[in-house]
Design a protein around this nucleic acid. Structure first.
Length: 491
RNA sequence: CGGGGUGUGGCGCAGUUGGCUAGCGCGCUACGUUCGGGACGUAGAGGUCGCGAGUUCGAGUCUCGCCACCCCGACCA
């Protein structure tokens, strides 16, 4: 299958595109800008969903579902929100087709024009807050902690599989609280959930922090984010959590009676991660031999390949392989025994390597004699021979080791590609010649950020939560600054 | 929406100054030999050359128009 695809060094963008398609994760669809997520790619998403959903439930949230369509008027209620999304909204104007009177197929029935046009949701704050108005009367109704798994549409001009498509899958949490403090606490809690997920499931180290006003969500008072670094030195926003203040409560008139019998506006948060995470997962770990998946998200964790010449050998190997498979499955490991006779072992090795299966076991006649199995790990491509005794625990240990190794590798990469910079010359040099994160002082003004963006295409990715206070000078304007922020070019 | 590029079996491509039956590799089907890192042989199947006009005795090839996709920019998770 995928013998020839470019290395990361040759052409990183092409490497990514080819990998997504040749590893059977997704493909472009008949609809411009929209992708088909294929079973192997969707299986990764399902694993992500399962882990995240569990984390949401454990932090007290419940799932619900709101409509795909949003009345246009809802959108205009929150000024900065409309402004932020207006340019990328798909609009439904009619509800019926008819046969073309001139016999040229099917056309829109102009008589079936909607009285009020419907927006296809780019995000659901407006429809949800319009609904919450009826759900919230008293402090006893709060907090309201709801998540929805959904698709959304943002009409992007340029798209890339997983990283930016016109339609994508995500989850959006929308919560309502009685106090500002509680809402901020929720915003921060969910940021922690995201970083926990990124680091412990995706093996992707992330920086936690705030967005600058320029990068803030349309309608939010504060946007928190987790930001990751990809292998080409570009940043990827991996998740956002927004403190919305009372903006949406005011726009949709959502009030509650507090314990002192006073009417107050509700405090809000929203937070989301999308199928973009799959793009991040690919770009963070994969190599020139194909996909590399962290064991905790790999649809298939272990593959067993038999090596044989004669049918009798296969029969004996199969017996052993099925034993191992059962033992692993009992421990909750997903295993495939690939006994297809139509492909040679070498072909299978390459195939599973390309698809990022973390561990491969090979059993041949020699192993049968010695009571051994050949174990190959995808992350380092190392092979070793294990005694078959207690193989399930050995494999579990190995999977754990791979998971940790991927994180450590990615962490070391980020450390090696984060540059502390104190002059503008240095800043430009790093952006042009090294890429990666730049830690530098910023005077805190949107104007300076804008100038830097125009001159270098780098933006402030994150103002780290743990940034220590130190006195310095803005790398661009020379004005005083009290902490460093992280700049990078971004996806 | 600007700038560049590409449309030929499932995939990747070749096809000369217009010329006869449109080729090659991979993949696919059948049979046989193979099987510890992408095996080989033999025999097959598969194409209105993106669409529409035009020029010509003759168009994959030339002209005009359209469409689609990809890459680079402006917008963004």
């Amino acid at each position: 299958m995928a013998k020839d695809f470019p290395s990361r060094a040759e052409n990183y963008a092409q490497w990514y595109n080819d990998l997504v398609i040749k590893a059977d994760l997704a493909e472009n669809s008949a609809v411009r800008g929209c992708m088909v997520i294929k079973p192997y790619g969707y299986a990764i998403w399902e694993k992500m969903q399962a882990a995240l959903d569990d984390m949401f439930k454990k932090t007290g949230h419940v799932n619900a579902y709101f409509p795909l369509f949003i009345p246009k008027s809802f959108f205009s209620r929150e000024a900065s929100h409309v402004e932020g999304f207006a340019k990328e909204c798909a609009v439904v104007t009619h509800y019926r087709l008819k046969n073309d009177p001139e016999g040229k197929g099917i056309v829109v029935d102009e008589e079936a024009k909607l009285e009020e046009e419907l927006i296809i949701r780019p995000t659901s704050e407006t429809i949800i807050w319009d609904t919450y108005r009826n759900w919230i009367q008293s402090y006893r109704d709060l907090p309201l902690l709801i998540n929805q798994w959904a698709n959304v549409v943002r009409w992007e001009m340029r798209t890339r599989l997983f990283l930016r498509t016109a339609e994508f899958l995500w989850q959006e949490g929308h919560t309502a609280h009685a106090t500002k403090e509680e809402a901020i606490e929720e915003t921060e809690r969910m940021l922690d959930v995201y970083s926990d997920f990124a680091e412990n499931w995706m093996a992707l180290p992330v920086l936690k922090g705030f967005k600058s006003p320029n990068e803030r969500f349309a309608g939010a008072l504060e946007t928190y984010c987790i930001e990751a670094l990809m292998q080409d030195g570009k940043a990827l926003q991996a998740g956002t959590s927004h403190f919305l203040g009372q903006n949406f409560a005011k726009a949709f008139d959502v009030k509650f009676l507090n314990q002192s019998n006073q009417l107050e506006y509700v405090w809000a948060t929203s937070w989301g991660v999308s199928t973009r995470l799959i793009g991040g997962l690919i770009m963070a770990h994969s190599d020139d031999n194909g996909l590399v998946l962290p064991p905790k998200l790999a649809p298939l964790q272990v593959v067993i390949v038999p090596i044989y010449k004669l049918p009798e050998q296969l029969a004996a190997i199969t017996e052993k392989a099925v034993q191992i498979k059962n033992a692993l499955e009992e421990k909750g490991i997903s295993v495939k025994y690939d006994d297809r006779d139509t492909f040679k072992p070498g072909w299978k090795f390459n195939e599973y390597e390309f698809k990022g299966v973390p561990v491969r076991l090979a059993i041949g006649p020699r192993d049968l004699e010695n009571g051994t199995v050949e174990v190959a790990r995808r992350d380092t491509l190392e092979k070793a021979v294990f005694q078959i005794t207690d193989i399930e625990n050995k494999v579990i240990n190995l999977l754990d080791k791979i998971q940790k190794n991927l994180f450590q590798k990615a962490y070391a990469f980020r450390e090696n590609n984060t540059h502390q910079v104190d002059s503008w010359e240095e800043f430009c040099d790093v952006i042009e010649n090294k890429a990666g994160f730049i830690s530098a002082h910023w005077d805190g003004t949107p104007e300076t950020e804008q100038k830097i963006k125009e001159e270098t295409k780098a933006t402030i990715r994150v103002i780290p939560l743990d940034a220590k206070t130190e006195h310095g000078k803005c790398v661009y304007s020379g004005k005083p600054s009290t902490k460093r922020v992280i700049f990078a070019r971004a996806y």
